[in-house]
Design a protein around this nucleic acid. Structure first.
Length: 254
DNA sequence: ATGACTCCCAGTGGGAGA
C-alpha cells in the first residue's frame, strides 16, 4: 500500500501534473495541500476519471486540502475538531483500516508575528487531536506540508536559517512532541541521500543549486512502523515546466 | 539586500508563501 503527500501550490494550475504523476505513481492514497480552490471549483470529475475517490475542503485564494484514494474514505473529518479555524488546513479519512490525516501546517511568517502564535496554537491543537485519534485508530498516517524542518540536516544552510521560520526551537519542539505522541518520521527510518529536500524556493535558482528544506513529512504510528518498506521524495515533478515549489513524498507499506 | 519567483485577486499593484 502506498501513500503520498504533495503541496501543489494551486490545483487549478497543477491538476494536469497531478494526473500525470498519478498515472506514473498509482498510489493508494494521495493528500494535497494548497489547492487554493473553493469547494464548488474542485475538479472532482477529472480525478474520478483517473480512478480516485476524493474528499476536499477548500477556500478562496489560500490553503485548501484534498484526500484522494482508490477506495472510498470513511469517517471523514475536516479541520481539527474543537479548534475554531477559518482556514482549510486538514482533511482526514479512514482507508483500508488506516487513519489518513492530510495537513497543511501554517507557515508562521516570522517568529515574532501573530501568524507564528497561530501556528503554535494550531500545532498544539493538532497534537492533542492526534493523541485522541491514535487511541481510536492504532494504524495512523499523518502527512503533509508541516512547514517545519525538524533538524539541521533538513536545511541547506542551517547557519543562515538558525532561528528563522521553519527552524525555530519552538517549531522543532512541536514536531518532536508529535513524535513523542507515538509517531515516527518514516523518511528517517532509512538511509537517505544527504541534502534531501522537499521544497525549493522559486527564486534565485534554488532548485538548480539544490538549496532547499525538508518540510513535507510522513509520520506513521507505532502499529505501522514495522510495515514501512520505503519513504522517498520524488524530485522529478520539481523539474516540470511551471512546477510546484514542493515535491511529493511517497510512503510504501508492506 | 526590505530583492530574486509564483499564485491569486485584483485591476494598471499588493499580499502571501517559505
Amino acid at each position: 500500500m502506498q501513500f503520498a503527500t504533495w503541496n501543489v501550490n494551486s490545483l487549478n494550475v497543477r491538476l494536469p501534473q497531478v494526473l500525470e504523476w498519478l498515472s506514473a505513481h498509482p498510489v493508494d492514497v494521495l493528500v494535497l495541500q494548497e489547492t487554493k480552490l473553493t469547494d464548488d471549483k474542485f475538479p472532482t470529475l477529472e480525478i474520478g476519471e483517473a480512478g480516485y475517490q476524493v474528499q476536499w475542503f477548500g477556500q478562496k485564494t489560500y490553503n485548501g486540502v484534498a484526500l484522494l484514494s482508490r477506495q472510498a474514505a470513511t469517517d471523514v473529518v475536516k479541520n481539527i475538531p474543537g479548534f475554531i479555524d477559518a482556514q482549510a488546513r486538514v482533511i482526514a479519512g479512514t482507508i483500508a483500516g488506516v487513519r489518513c490525516i492530510g495537513a497543511y501546517f501554517p507557515n508562521g511568517e516570522a517568529p515574532d508575528s501573530d501568524k507564528f502564535q497561530y501556528k503554535m496554537r494550531w500545532m498544539e491543537a493538532l497534537r492533542e487531536w492526534i493523541r485522541a485519534e491514535l487511541a481510536i485508530h492504532p494504524k495512523l498516517v499523518l502527512m503533509g506540508d508541516f512547514n517545519v524542518a525538524p533538524e539541521d540536516r533538513d536545511v541547506y544552510d542551517p547557519v543562515a536559517w538558525a532561528g528563522q521560520i521553519h527552524c525555530t526551537p519552538d517549531e522543532r519542539a512541536h514536531f518532536q512532541q508529535l513524535l513523542s505522541a507515538g509517531l515516527t518520521d518514516a523518511f528517517r527510518l532509512f538511509e537517505q541521500p544527504p541534502k534531501s529536500w522537499s521544497w525549493w524556493d522559486y527564486r534565485n535558482l534554488a532548485f538548480r543549486k539544490n538549496q532547499g528544506l525538508r518540510i513535507d513529512h510522513i509520520l506513521v504510528s507505532e502499529a505501522l512502523r514495522t510495515s514501512v518498506q520505503a519513504c522517498v521524495i520524488d524530485k522529478l515533478p520539481r523539474k516540470n515546466e511551471r512546477p510546484s515549489d514542493h515535491a511529493p513524498v511517497i510512503l510504501t507499506l508492506g
